[in-house]
Amino acid sequence: MKPSLIRITLACLLLQAISAPAVFAVVTPNPPQLQAKGYVLMDFQSGAIIAEQNARMGLAPASLTKLMTAYVVGQEIKSGRLGWEDTVTISENAWSAKFPDSSKMFIQPKDEITISNLMRGVIVQSGNDACVALAEHVAGSESAFVALMNGWAEKLNLQDTNFVNSHGLDIDGIQTSPTDMAVLMQSIINDVPDVYAIYSEKVFKWNKITQYNRNKLLWDNSIDVDGGKTGYTSNAGYSLVSSAKEGQMRLISVVMGTPSKRSRISQSKNLLSYGFRFFDTKQVATQGEVESTAKVWKGDLSEIELGFAEDAYLTLPRSLSAGLDKTIVVNEPIIAPIEKGQVVGKVVWKHDDKTVASYPLVSNQAVAEGSWIGKLWDSLVLWVKSLLA
């Protein structure tokens, strides 16, 4: 190529580079490969699943079961039926001697122990004996308490979960999934925050025996983990549910069936770090915020405001944090009567014509039926509109 032609070509390339908009490619890599039977990484605010493997597989929960035990007790406290300083008398069934080869709080028959201390025995020490003591105190028997556990599992829409005992030792029929455990941890943080606060405690001493929280991520200063629950049986392997914060973002990691204590810690950290590095969560709407208005037919009002029943969040790869299209879809025609909070549409966010998130729109007002003449007129208008459609 002649020197003059080279100079012209370079000049053209330079002008093209100057005039073109700056484009920075951001690549979201695949999630880390984990040695686990199943795992899930979920955003706390949006509930979006960032990464998963065998997320709905029914697996032995081991001591992850104690998350539900603590949740049920937390709901009893929240309702006022139970108090943190209420005293529990320990029965023979809850005697630590009944659990010779498993984790325990080391309680004895006729001990008088507060709910607060028993909860620490469950959460920090992972005590099977403390689980039975709480179960009997709340429901009269462990089997009755397990019915409460399964009732709450159904209410929380834990689709793959069935509890058979209060502590998680291997038994026929007991199972859960990574997704269900992520939803349960999300519910603990949301619904019973006083209970979740205990998960950050690193040590608890009872009966002159000091035990340390088995969630070693609490000691890792490179990641802000403030709660979680470990589990292990020979059938389940080593598992860990953990939650961490970075800025305004909170993630929940569930890793089930890893080969060792060390691997459940390192793999959970890898999963959380991946989520914080490559994803972002933003609030896009506030509960009650007016998003749009819509025509109402046959009502005492002709128009309603449409809003969000809850705060709306989007969790997306950082490469997709901009350039989203938002569309409002109304379930037309909206015909009275309408209840306040009734779903009448949705807001859809898309990227390149692919839906990335959707939240329901609800009526911010109640609308009663209108007069008979108004309803008759609206019926006529709707009939004509249907003919022209």
Rank of each mutant, 00 (worst) to 15 (best):
M119W: 11
A135P: 14
N128G: 14
A97I: 11
P109F: 02
P100H: 05
Q108Y: 15
A144Y: 05
E92A: 13
A130I: 07
A97D: 12
M119Q: 03
I123W: 14
F106V: 06
D86N: 11
K98D: 04
A133K: 00
I90C: 00
T89E: 06
I107M: 02
A139T: 10
S91F: 14
S102I: 15
T114D: 04
A133G: 05
F99R: 06
M105E: 04
M105K: 05
I107S: 01
I123L: 07
I107Q: 01
F106A: 05
S103D: 08
F106C: 06
K110T: 11
A144H: 08
A130K: 06
A139L: 10
A97V: 11
N93Y: 13
P100M: 04
G121K: 09
F99M: 12
A139D: 08
Q125H: 04
T89V: 10
K104V: 15
E92Q: 09
I113M: 09
A135M: 08
L118F: 12
E136I: 10
V124A: 09
L118M: 13
A97C: 10
G127W: 09
Q125K: 09
V88H: 00
S126T: 07
G127I: 06
H137W: 05
K104H: 14
H137C: 02
V132E: 08
E142L: 10
F99N: 04
E92S: 10
K98Q: 11
F145A: 11
T89Y: 01
V122Q: 09
L118K: 03
S141C: 10
P100V: 10
S91A: 02
R120F: 03
E112T: 12
F99C: 03
F99K: 13
A139K: 07
G127C: 10
S126I: 04
S103H: 02
D86Y: 12
L134I: 14
V138A: 13
T114S: 14
I90H: 00
T87M: 14
F145S: 13
D111N: 14
D101S: 12
S143D: 15
A144C: 04
S116W: 12
F99E: 07
D86P: 03
T114M: 07
S96I: 01
S102G: 07
D129P: 03
L118H: 05
I113V: 15
S96F: 01
S126R: 10
T114C: 04
G121P: 01
E112L: 07
A139I: 12
N128D: 15
S96W: 00
D86A: 10
N93G: 13
A94P: 00
C131R: 04
N93W: 11
W95Q: 00
V132Y: 09
I113Q: 01
E142K: 05
C131A: 13
P100R: 14
A97E: 13
F106L: 13
L118R: 03
K98L: 03
G121W: 06
A133D: 00
A144P: 11
D101G: 11
A130E: 09
E136T: 04
A135Q: 09
F99Y: 15
I90D: 00
D101A: 14
M105Q: 09
V88R: 00
N117H: 06
E112K: 15
L118D: 13
F106T: 01
